[in-house]
Design a protein around this nucleic acid. Sequence first.
DNA 1: CGGACAGTTGAATCAAATCAACAAACGTGG
DNA 2: CCACGTTTGTTGATTTGATTCAACTGTCCG
Lengths: 224, 224
Amino acid sequence: MLSQPFRQEPCATALFGSPAVFSQPDEDCVLSDAMEKLGTFISVGRNQEIYSEQEPAHYLYKIVSGVVRTCKFLIDGRRQIGSFHFSGDTFGFTSGMTHGLSAEAVKSCKLIAVRRTILTAAAGRDAELATALWNAATEELQRAQEHMVLLGRTTAAERITAFLQGLAGGRFVSDAFDIPMSRQDIADYLGLTIETVSRTITLLEQTGFLALESARRLQLRTAA
Amino acid sequence: MLSQPFRQEPCATALFGSPAVFSQPDEDCVLSDAMEKLGTFISVGRNQEIYSEQEPAHYLYKIVSGVVRTCKFLIDGRRQIGSFHFSGDTFGFTSGMTHGLSAEAVKSCKLIAVRRTILTAAAGRDAELATALWNAATEELQRAQEHMVLLGRTTAAERITAFLQGLAGGRFVSDAFDIPMSRQDIADYLGLTIETVSRTITLLEQTGFLALESARRLQLRTAA
DNA sequence: CGGACAGTTGAATCAAATCAACAAACGTGG
DNA sequence: CCACGTTTGTTGATTTGATTCAACTGTCCG
């Protein structure tokens, strides 16, 4: 199973030492297979909530198709998107009984939902599955850690560049691709405002770093 | 086992919905006990490196005493501290074969190091330990997710406030406590500069939010 | 066609960074 | 114990990258 988007090419800007900004292709399918076997199928529409912050965490989810964002809100409405998830990804990892983030469909999604109790029970009988679960959690942790660097220590242009390269994944340069999320989603993911996102993309286009086919579709050029 | 620092009181500013900014007291000691049994004892001096980014990840560590920071560097030297760890904490979780962050002693530390292979083998035989490992990883993930909100969507004053409240933990107001890390460490943790950290602390002192006993020791007041 | 979003662009403002100087604390050795 | 250099922290003046406020354009869809 090759999850199409979000594989990271050797970073063009050479800013980062480590390669993977987003989720990688799922090498051991132990977890995936288990979820398909144990889970039930659900559909959610665009912008529909899958679960919300503070809600008891009964399920883990695997994405069959679509895109999901997980996010946190401050009381005054400020929003931080923690991660985007794509086909093949598993999300919903939580410590404790309740979700720390909410999850929403960026566009309509087909999901497989597995009860945590069932999955952990299966993991108790299957050491390989237990390891796969642990790996999935640490991979998500690693992505979060990389994202912290982006949020804490980089400029708007660097964030947008890294984000788009992550989206483009292993694609060849000059292959155009779709941006499934809105500018507001990108802004809330990168810790910026919509205006800055828009301006910076325009700037990168003028620099020749990318070419916009439409607002939601573009291609990257190698040149810095 | 009560790890002294870093328990979160109900957030005074009511900014955040969720309680735990940092590590909580270790409720199930399964992991801790296993590590003590399987691990070897090591000492590291102040600012000494425990492991570095990209290095093969052979060990997990439990802190007996001292404070550890984990961090990532950009090629031009910019640094982001991902987390601070205190007595009782376990750190060194990694997906894949190599560490994604480096770890350094903020002040001299006594650690217990356990080979990953040994720990995962033990987890294969002990479902309870496997669960404990998974929990530890997801707890770290949750802290990372909360930190992303801080880095992406809050002001300098909010970051400093949240950080100091996290450090103070469950202490009573007017109990003074030590700050084990430098201003530079705080800055690199919160995505700020030393100057801004220093200025903001001064500001919070003038506001009456806190009282500085010395640069490395202070007490919080409830009043905003 | 027209209303509602979604995205872009411009001008003014501001929070934090930068550049620079100073002060306080620390450790080391005479 | 004090002198001295070094590190760590504070404060001031200025600059700047990103935000804010505001207007405008493009696009989708009944």
